[in-house]
Design a protein around this nucleic acid. Structure first.
Lengths: 150, 150
DNA sequence: CCTGAAATATTGCCAGA
DNA sequence: TCTGGCAATATTTCAGG
């Protein structure tokens, strides 16, 4: 299902998702209709999940990246807590982690001040939250959601 | 520069980047040429950084997410180490963090076994790496790169 | 910064291999 | 699953407000 031609199509779309189908077909050497058929099929099969625009965080005052480890209360209902965290604005990722049975969040805020506000007003006020540990990012060398295509 | 109409355009593209321009123009109530002009301008100004396809990691054997904290050797050249880490396949993010003066990595591997291989063969073998701490993800409640548009 | 018109290009459907 | 044809749409440029 994910043969060489589909891999080639996906690699092209990973670079530049918003290009005409006809352009893709030229690069892979198939008729446009064949490429369209393949892409539609991959969308329906859930291989392709969607298409996103990549915005420059600086231009939207979301320069500050931080990761927050959440230690839940011993009696906390984990799925509930996960949902509550996921619903907070500027929390981009919520992962349930092994080891300490806690959550790891990725957040994007304007600066460390707004990060602090978020912690105090939105996170530590949740009942199920016992404590937190914040890892502030000083600089980002690499940041992509592009997975490796074998 | 990022006025109400551009915000509306960006919100549409955040949902579904690969849609015809004419469709966007219908939704925002402008002529297609006006929308094209606005999008091109935002691309040139670096407000829009690009367009990406979102692939289903499970279909490419990249289901296992993990975060790895790297403690560098005291005498390590930090920029060099950052570049080395960023070059490794399946490392999606490399952040330089405050506090412990280390790196935080986000990785995607097939399973915990391949994660272990990566640590042993590719990461701990780097001279500048003193020690590591791995946070394995059991489940992901939310994972997006979509920043909040004010 | 917008509209509207015109030329060019793409999409998406279908028949046939 | 592919190609090629064709009608419907979309893109892009440009003149003008």
């Amino acid at each position: 299902m994910i043969d060489k031609k589909n891999m080639k199509i996906l690699k092209i779309l990973q670079e530049k998702a918003r290009i005409p189908n006809a352009e893709v077909s030229r690069q892979v050497g198939l008729a446009p209709s064949a490429v369209l058929e393949r892409i539609r099929k991959m969308e329906n099969q859930g291989i392709i999940d969607g298409y996103e625009v990549r915005l420059n965080p600086e231009r939207f005052s979301r320069k500050q990246v931080a990761f927050i480890e959440i230690m839940p209360q011993p009696d906390a209902h984990i799925p509930d807590l996960g949902e509550k965290l996921a619903a907070i604005a500027d929390i981009l990722e919520v992962h349930y982690t092994a080891g300490n049975d806690g959550f790891l969040l990725k957040v994007r805020t304007t600066d460390t001040e707004t990060l602090g506000e978020m912690l105090q007003k939105k996170i530590t006020t949740i009942d199920e939250v016992l404590s937190t540990r914040t890892i502030t990012v000083l600089s980002t060398i690499k940041e992509t959601s592009r997975i490796t295509i074998d």
